[in-house]
Computed example of a mutant assay.
Amino acid sequence: MDRDDTTLRVLSTSDLAGLDISLADVLDTVEQAYRTLAAGQSDNPRKLTVKPADGHSVSYAMLGRDGVRNVVAVKTSYKHGLRESRENQHYYTTLTIYDDVTGLPVAMMDCSRIGSLRTPAVSALLARECAAPGAATALVIGTGTQGRLALPFLLTALPKLERLLLSGTHPDGIAAVRAELARHFPERGIDLVTDLEAAARDADVIVATAGGHTPAAVEADWLKPGAVSILVGHGLAPSTLHRADRVIATSEAQMRVTGTDMADADGNLPAVDLELPVVISGASSARTAPEQRIFAYNSGLVVTDIALGHRFAQLAAAQGLGTEVALWR
Protein backbone atom coordinates (compact mmCIF):
# COMPACT_ATOMS: atom_id res chain seq x y z
CA MET A 1 0.00 0.00 0.00
CA ASP A 2 1.39 3.41 -0.95
CA ARG A 3 1.90 5.74 1.95
CA ASP A 4 -0.47 8.71 1.97
CA ASP A 5 -2.19 10.90 4.51
CA THR A 6 -4.78 8.21 5.32
CA THR A 7 -2.44 5.31 6.15
CA LEU A 8 -0.50 4.62 9.31
CA ARG A 9 2.25 2.06 9.89
CA VAL A 10 1.40 0.14 13.08
CA LEU A 11 4.32 -1.56 14.80
CA SER A 12 3.37 -4.27 17.28
CA THR A 13 5.33 -5.61 20.23
CA SER A 14 6.54 -8.52 18.09
CA ASP A 15 7.54 -6.22 15.21
CA LEU A 16 9.77 -4.19 17.52
CA ALA A 17 11.13 -7.24 19.33
CA GLY A 18 12.71 -8.42 16.08
CA LEU A 19 14.68 -5.23 15.53
CA ASP A 20 18.37 -5.37 16.38
CA ILE A 21 19.82 -2.21 17.89
CA SER A 22 23.07 -1.86 19.83
CA LEU A 23 23.32 -0.35 23.30
CA ALA A 24 25.72 2.25 21.91
CA ASP A 25 23.17 3.23 19.25
CA VAL A 26 20.50 3.66 21.93
CA LEU A 27 22.84 5.77 24.08
CA ASP A 28 23.80 7.97 21.13
CA THR A 29 20.16 8.47 20.13
CA VAL A 30 19.06 9.41 23.65
CA GLU A 31 22.07 11.68 24.16
CA GLN A 32 21.36 13.49 20.89
CA ALA A 33 17.77 14.08 22.05
CA TYR A 34 19.07 15.79 25.20
CA ARG A 35 21.54 17.91 23.24
CA THR A 36 18.81 19.00 20.85
CA LEU A 37 16.54 19.94 23.76
CA ALA A 38 19.31 21.88 25.51
CA ALA A 39 19.96 23.78 22.28
CA GLY A 40 16.34 24.93 22.20
CA GLN A 41 15.55 22.99 19.04
CA SER A 42 13.02 20.62 20.62
CA ASP A 43 9.89 21.00 22.72
CA ASN A 44 9.08 18.87 25.77
CA PRO A 45 6.02 20.23 27.61
CA ARG A 46 5.10 18.98 31.05
CA LYS A 47 3.24 15.67 31.06
CA LEU A 48 -0.45 15.44 31.90
CA THR A 49 -1.39 13.03 34.68
CA VAL A 50 -4.68 11.45 35.68
CA LYS A 51 -5.00 9.33 38.83
CA PRO A 52 -8.21 8.28 40.60
CA ALA A 53 -8.65 9.13 44.27
CA ASP A 54 -8.12 5.54 45.40
CA GLY A 55 -4.84 5.30 43.44
CA HIS A 56 -5.64 2.05 41.64
CA SER A 57 -4.39 3.35 38.27
CA VAL A 58 -2.39 6.14 36.70
CA SER A 59 -2.40 7.60 33.19
CA TYR A 60 -0.01 9.96 31.43
CA ALA A 61 -0.10 11.86 28.15
CA MET A 62 3.04 13.47 26.70
CA LEU A 63 3.46 15.60 23.58
CA GLY A 64 6.79 16.65 22.11
CA ARG A 65 8.73 17.71 19.05
CA ASP A 66 12.24 16.72 17.97
CA GLY A 67 13.75 19.64 16.06
CA VAL A 68 16.60 17.65 14.50
CA ARG A 69 14.53 14.70 13.34
CA ASN A 70 11.69 17.08 12.50
CA VAL A 71 9.00 14.86 13.97
CA VAL A 72 6.12 15.44 16.36
CA ALA A 73 4.81 12.67 18.59
CA VAL A 74 2.34 11.83 21.32
CA LYS A 75 3.01 9.20 23.96
CA THR A 76 0.31 7.72 26.19
CA SER A 77 0.81 5.51 29.21
CA TYR A 78 -1.78 3.68 31.32
CA LYS A 79 -1.13 1.37 34.27
CA HIS A 80 -3.92 -0.39 36.18
CA GLY A 81 -3.68 -2.31 39.45
CA LEU A 82 -0.94 -0.31 41.16
CA ARG A 83 -1.58 -2.07 44.46
CA GLU A 84 -1.42 -5.50 42.85
CA SER A 85 1.62 -7.69 42.28
CA ARG A 86 3.47 -7.09 39.04
CA GLU A 87 1.92 -10.08 37.24
CA ASN A 88 -1.59 -8.82 38.03
CA GLN A 89 -1.04 -5.30 36.72
CA HIS A 90 -2.10 -4.06 33.28
CA TYR A 91 0.20 -1.67 31.44
CA TYR A 92 -0.22 -0.16 27.97
CA THR A 93 1.91 2.51 26.36
CA THR A 94 1.92 3.79 22.78
CA LEU A 95 3.83 6.32 20.70
CA THR A 96 2.41 7.96 17.56
CA ILE A 97 4.88 9.87 15.36
CA TYR A 98 4.24 12.39 12.58
CA ASP A 99 6.73 13.77 10.06
CA ASP A 100 6.75 17.57 10.49
CA VAL A 101 8.31 18.12 7.05
CA THR A 102 5.89 16.12 4.89
CA GLY A 103 2.96 16.33 7.30
CA LEU A 104 2.45 12.55 6.99
CA PRO A 105 2.14 10.04 9.82
CA VAL A 106 5.26 7.96 10.41
CA ALA A 107 4.12 5.18 12.73
CA MET A 108 2.17 4.17 15.78
CA MET A 109 3.92 1.67 18.00
CA ASP A 110 3.91 -0.15 21.28
CA CYS A 111 6.27 1.92 23.45
CA SER A 112 7.21 -0.73 26.00
CA ARG A 113 10.51 -1.77 24.38
CA ILE A 114 11.41 1.86 23.79
CA GLY A 115 10.91 2.55 27.50
CA SER A 116 12.80 -0.56 28.53
CA LEU A 117 15.81 0.72 26.56
CA ARG A 118 15.47 4.47 27.06
CA THR A 119 15.25 4.40 30.86
CA PRO A 120 18.44 2.40 31.57
CA ALA A 121 20.19 4.42 28.88
CA VAL A 122 19.29 7.63 30.73
CA SER A 123 20.51 6.10 34.01
CA ALA A 124 23.79 5.27 32.30
CA LEU A 125 24.14 8.83 31.02
CA LEU A 126 23.42 10.16 34.52
CA ALA A 127 26.06 7.80 35.91
CA ARG A 128 28.60 8.86 33.29
CA GLU A 129 28.06 12.54 34.01
CA CYS A 130 27.74 12.29 37.82
CA ALA A 131 30.18 9.53 38.81
CA ALA A 132 33.33 10.50 40.68
CA PRO A 133 36.67 10.00 38.92
CA GLY A 134 37.78 6.39 39.27
CA ALA A 135 34.32 5.01 40.04
CA ALA A 136 34.74 1.24 40.12
CA THR A 137 31.72 -0.41 41.79
CA ALA A 138 28.10 -0.26 40.64
CA LEU A 139 25.07 -1.53 42.57
CA VAL A 140 21.69 -2.13 40.92
CA ILE A 141 18.65 -2.54 43.16
CA GLY A 142 15.77 -4.43 41.54
CA THR A 143 15.44 -7.08 38.84
CA GLY A 144 12.34 -5.96 36.95
CA THR A 145 12.14 -4.49 33.47
CA GLN A 146 14.39 -1.52 34.27
CA GLY A 147 16.87 -3.52 36.31
CA ARG A 148 17.58 -6.08 33.63
CA LEU A 149 19.45 -3.77 31.27
CA ALA A 150 20.84 -1.40 33.88
CA LEU A 151 24.25 -3.07 34.14
CA PRO A 152 24.86 -3.55 30.37
CA PHE A 153 24.09 0.13 29.78
CA LEU A 154 26.27 1.19 32.73
CA LEU A 155 29.18 -0.79 31.30
CA THR A 156 28.62 0.76 27.87
CA ALA A 157 28.79 4.26 29.35
CA LEU A 158 31.40 3.49 32.05
CA PRO A 159 33.56 0.67 30.67
CA LYS A 160 36.07 0.96 33.53
CA LEU A 161 33.61 -0.29 36.16
CA GLU A 162 35.28 -3.23 37.88
CA ARG A 163 32.67 -4.72 40.24
CA LEU A 164 28.97 -5.23 39.54
CA LEU A 165 26.57 -5.79 42.45
CA LEU A 166 22.91 -6.78 42.33
CA SER A 167 20.29 -6.59 45.07
CA GLY A 168 17.16 -8.60 44.25
CA THR A 169 14.89 -11.27 45.65
CA HIS A 170 13.01 -12.72 42.67
CA PRO A 171 14.82 -15.77 41.22
CA ASP A 172 13.44 -15.26 37.71
CA GLY A 173 14.42 -11.59 37.77
CA ILE A 174 17.93 -12.37 39.00
CA ALA A 175 18.32 -14.95 36.24
CA ALA A 176 17.10 -12.41 33.66
CA VAL A 177 19.62 -9.80 34.85
CA ARG A 178 22.43 -12.36 34.57
CA ALA A 179 21.23 -13.42 31.11
CA GLU A 180 21.16 -9.84 29.78
CA LEU A 181 24.64 -9.14 31.10
CA ALA A 182 25.94 -12.38 29.57
CA ARG A 183 24.35 -11.47 26.23
CA HIS A 184 26.07 -8.08 26.03
CA PHE A 185 29.19 -8.61 28.17
CA PRO A 186 29.81 -12.37 28.39
CA GLU A 187 33.13 -11.88 30.16
CA ARG A 188 31.60 -9.99 33.11
CA GLY A 189 30.00 -11.42 36.26
CA ILE A 190 27.61 -10.19 38.94
CA ASP A 191 27.86 -10.48 42.72
CA LEU A 192 24.42 -11.04 44.25
CA VAL A 193 24.28 -9.20 47.60
CA THR A 194 22.16 -9.96 50.66
CA ASP A 195 23.41 -7.12 52.88
CA LEU A 196 22.13 -3.99 51.15
CA GLU A 197 23.78 -1.59 53.59
CA ALA A 198 27.21 -3.16 53.14
CA ALA A 199 26.80 -3.14 49.35
CA ALA A 200 25.69 0.49 49.33
CA ARG A 201 28.69 1.49 51.42
CA ASP A 202 30.96 -0.06 48.77
CA ALA A 203 29.20 1.36 45.71
CA ASP A 204 30.34 4.35 43.70
CA VAL A 205 27.20 4.20 41.54
CA ILE A 206 23.78 3.04 42.79
CA VAL A 207 20.83 2.61 40.42
CA ALA A 208 17.53 1.95 42.21
CA THR A 209 15.01 0.33 39.88
CA ALA A 210 12.92 -1.77 42.29
CA GLY A 211 9.13 -1.86 42.33
CA GLY A 212 6.90 -0.06 44.77
CA HIS A 213 6.56 -3.06 47.08
CA THR A 214 10.28 -3.34 47.80
CA PRO A 215 11.49 -3.11 51.40
CA ALA A 216 14.89 -1.92 50.12
CA ALA A 217 15.71 1.66 51.09
CA VAL A 218 19.30 2.88 50.98
CA GLU A 219 19.86 5.65 53.54
CA ALA A 220 22.08 8.69 53.10
CA ASP A 221 24.35 7.53 55.95
CA TRP A 222 25.25 4.45 53.93
CA LEU A 223 26.66 6.39 50.98
CA LYS A 224 30.41 6.76 50.62
CA PRO A 225 31.93 10.15 49.74
CA GLY A 226 31.65 10.72 46.01
CA ALA A 227 28.80 8.24 45.49
CA VAL A 228 26.00 8.92 43.01
CA SER A 229 22.58 7.42 43.69
CA ILE A 230 20.17 7.31 40.75
CA LEU A 231 16.47 6.83 41.36
CA VAL A 232 14.44 5.17 38.62
CA GLY A 233 11.78 3.36 40.62
CA HIS A 234 12.25 2.56 44.30
CA GLY A 235 15.09 1.49 46.57
CA LEU A 236 16.40 4.81 47.92
CA ALA A 237 15.22 6.47 51.12
CA PRO A 238 14.26 10.17 50.96
CA SER A 239 17.38 11.01 52.97
CA THR A 240 19.55 10.28 49.91
CA LEU A 241 17.82 13.19 48.18
CA HIS A 242 17.46 15.64 51.05
CA ARG A 243 21.03 15.23 52.29
CA ALA A 244 22.70 15.14 48.87
CA ASP A 245 25.41 17.66 48.08
CA ARG A 246 24.06 18.02 44.54
CA VAL A 247 20.72 17.12 42.95
CA ILE A 248 20.52 16.38 39.23
CA ALA A 249 17.27 15.58 37.43
CA THR A 250 16.30 14.83 33.87
CA SER A 251 13.54 17.40 34.50
CA GLU A 252 12.80 19.28 37.72
CA ALA A 253 9.17 19.76 36.70
CA GLN A 254 8.75 16.02 36.11
CA MET A 255 10.44 15.24 39.41
CA ARG A 256 7.93 17.41 41.25
CA VAL A 257 5.08 15.50 39.60
CA THR A 258 6.33 11.92 39.94
CA GLY A 259 8.77 12.14 42.86
CA THR A 260 6.34 13.03 45.64
CA ASP A 261 7.14 9.83 47.54
CA MET A 262 10.58 11.34 48.21
CA ALA A 263 9.16 14.50 49.84
CA ASP A 264 10.00 15.41 53.44
CA ALA A 265 7.52 15.51 56.33
CA ASP A 266 6.22 18.87 55.11
CA GLY A 267 5.71 17.58 51.57
CA ASN A 268 8.69 19.47 50.16
CA LEU A 269 11.36 18.45 47.66
CA PRO A 270 14.74 20.21 47.52
CA ALA A 271 15.70 22.36 44.57
CA VAL A 272 17.41 20.74 41.61
CA ASP A 273 20.93 22.04 40.93
CA LEU A 274 21.03 21.06 37.26
CA GLU A 275 18.97 19.25 34.67
CA LEU A 276 20.58 16.51 32.59
CA PRO A 277 20.15 18.19 29.17
CA VAL A 278 22.26 21.13 30.39
CA VAL A 279 24.92 18.74 31.69
CA ILE A 280 24.92 16.70 28.46
CA SER A 281 25.33 19.90 26.46
CA GLY A 282 28.58 20.64 28.29
CA ALA A 283 27.38 24.01 29.59
CA SER A 284 27.74 22.90 33.24
CA SER A 285 29.20 19.97 35.15
CA ALA A 286 27.08 17.76 37.37
CA ARG A 287 29.95 17.27 39.83
CA THR A 288 32.03 20.17 41.11
CA ALA A 289 34.06 18.22 43.72
CA PRO A 290 35.10 14.56 43.90
CA GLU A 291 33.73 14.02 47.43
CA GLN A 292 30.20 15.23 46.64
CA ARG A 293 27.34 12.79 47.13
CA ILE A 294 25.01 13.28 44.19
CA PHE A 295 21.36 12.31 43.94
CA ALA A 296 20.05 11.91 40.37
CA TYR A 297 16.39 11.56 39.44
CA ASN A 298 15.58 9.68 36.25
CA SER A 299 12.13 10.57 34.93
CA GLY A 300 11.18 10.17 31.31
CA LEU A 301 11.32 13.05 28.87
CA VAL A 302 9.18 12.40 25.83
CA VAL A 303 11.82 13.82 23.48
CA THR A 304 13.97 10.78 24.27
CA ASP A 305 11.07 8.43 23.51
CA ILE A 306 10.45 10.31 20.28
CA ALA A 307 14.07 10.06 19.15
CA LEU A 308 14.34 6.37 19.98
CA GLY A 309 10.88 5.61 18.59
CA HIS A 310 11.76 7.35 15.34
CA ARG A 311 14.98 5.31 15.18
CA PHE A 312 12.93 2.13 15.57
CA ALA A 313 10.47 3.32 12.92
CA GLN A 314 13.35 3.86 10.49
CA LEU A 315 14.73 0.37 11.15
CA ALA A 316 11.28 -1.19 10.84
CA ALA A 317 10.53 0.60 7.55
CA ALA A 318 13.86 -0.54 6.11
CA GLN A 319 12.88 -4.15 6.91
CA GLY A 320 9.27 -3.81 5.79
CA LEU A 321 7.91 -4.52 9.26
CA GLY A 322 4.55 -3.38 10.52
CA THR A 323 1.01 -3.23 9.21
CA GLU A 324 -0.32 -0.41 7.05
CA VAL A 325 -3.74 0.64 8.33
CA ALA A 326 -6.05 2.98 6.41
CA LEU A 327 -6.99 4.69 9.64
CA TRP A 328 -8.45 7.89 8.25
CA ARG A 329 -10.50 6.49 5.37
Rank of each mutant, 00 (worst) to 15 (best):
G40M: 06
T6F: 14
K47D: 09
H56V: 12
T76I: 12
G55E: 15
R83I: 01
G64I: 15
T29F: 00
P52L: 07
R35L: 15
T36M: 02
N44P: 02
D43V: 10
A39Q: 13
E31L: 01
P52R: 04
D28A: 15
R83V: 00
R69G: 13
L19S: 02
M109P: 02
Q41V: 13
T76G: 10
R46P: 03
E87V: 00
T29S: 03
L19D: 01
V74C: 01
S85N: 10
N88E: 00
V10I: 14
V30E: 00
T13D: 06
T36L: 04
Y60D: 14
H56K: 07
A17H: 01
L27E: 09
A17Q: 05
R69M: 05
N44T: 11
G103Q: 07
V58D: 04
A33L: 05
N88D: 01
D54E: 15
G40N: 05
T7C: 09
V71A: 06
Q32D: 13
R65M: 04
S14C: 00
S42H: 07
L82N: 03
G103Y: 13
N44G: 09
K51G: 01
I21L: 02
L19P: 03
L27N: 07
R3D: 07
P52E: 04
A39W: 08
N88Q: 10
M108P: 03
T94K: 06
G18C: 10
D110Y: 03
L37H: 07
E87K: 02
V68D: 00
R86Y: 05
R35H: 12
Q89C: 10
A17Y: 00
D5G: 08
S22R: 05
H90I: 14
A61F: 07
L104Y: 13
D4F: 05
L23W: 06
D66S: 15
Y98H: 11
V68P: 01
V106C: 07
L11S: 01
D43Q: 08
V101M: 05
Y98I: 14
P45R: 14
R35F: 08
R46F: 03
D66E: 08
A38R: 10
L95Y: 03
H80G: 09
Y60E: 13
L23M: 10
Y98G: 08
Q32L: 14
V26A: 07
T36F: 02
G40L: 10
L63V: 11
L82M: 00
A38I: 11
V68K: 08
A107Q: 06
T76D: 06
S22W: 03
L8S: 09
L11G: 02
N44D: 15
T36G: 01
